[in-house]
Simulated scan of single mutants.
Amino acid sequence: MHPDYLHAAIADTPRVAVYGTLKQGFNNAHWLSGARRLGSDTTRALTLYDIGPYPGAKWQASKGVIIEIYEISIDQLAQLDRLEGYRIDAPAQGEYDRQQIATHFGRAWVYLYNPGVAGKRAICEGGWEMPYTGHD
């Protein structure tokens, strides 16, 4: 049984916008297995930051970063909240906060990076690429 906040969240917005390791072909894409991929979009509302093994997004104007939109279930939203360190009791204190963003497919949840990004490379156009690990 899921908490009431998850029922309300998925009833209001059954979509998620992803920009990093959850994208198709990336190492965490399996978390969206079974979700319906609606397509890609570009948003000028976010700037991505290269945190190293993953990116973080901030509400900062950009030239347009690429996001993928998925229709998700309540189970998937619960799993994504855990993966992203989202805290319903203190959203600003988790690693990521979950907020809504407008997309061509309707409003979608997006995870915004809470820690500071001083000294991190900004990605103001295009998308984040996974770092090369040296493994083929």
Rank of each mutant, 00 (worst) to 15 (best):
E84S: 07
Y5P: 05
G119P: 01
I72H: 01
W128V: 08
G134K: 08
I72K: 03
Q79P: 01
Q60G: 12
L38E: 12
Y54Q: 10
Y70V: 00
G134H: 09
F105Q: 02
L80T: 02
H104I: 07
T47P: 10
G126F: 04
F26R: 14
S73Y: 04
K120I: 01
L48A: 07
A108C: 03
I51D: 06
Q93V: 02
G64F: 09
A17H: 03
G116L: 09
H30L: 01
L32G: 07
H135A: 15
T42A: 12
I67W: 02
Y132N: 15
G126A: 09
Q99E: 14
L22W: 07
A118P: 02
G64N: 10
V16I: 07
D12S: 09
G116K: 12
D12H: 00
Y86A: 02
A92P: 06
Q76Y: 01
L38C: 11
K23R: 15
R36Y: 09
K58E: 05
P131Y: 00
I66L: 12
G134Y: 01
A17R: 04
Y54L: 10
G39V: 05
P115W: 08
P91W: 07
V117N: 05
S73L: 06
T47Q: 15
S33G: 15
A11F: 06
H2F: 15
Y113A: 01
T103C: 05
D136R: 15
W59V: 14
Y96S: 03
Y113F: 06
W109D: 05
Y86W: 04
R107K: 14
R15T: 12
V65K: 02
C124M: 15
N114D: 11
Y132F: 15
W109G: 04
Q100W: 04
A57C: 11
D12F: 02
H7Y: 14
R87E: 09
A122E: 10
D97C: 13
G94F: 03
D41E: 09
T42I: 15
S73W: 00
I101A: 00
N114A: 10
A108N: 00
Y113K: 07
D136S: 14
R37G: 03
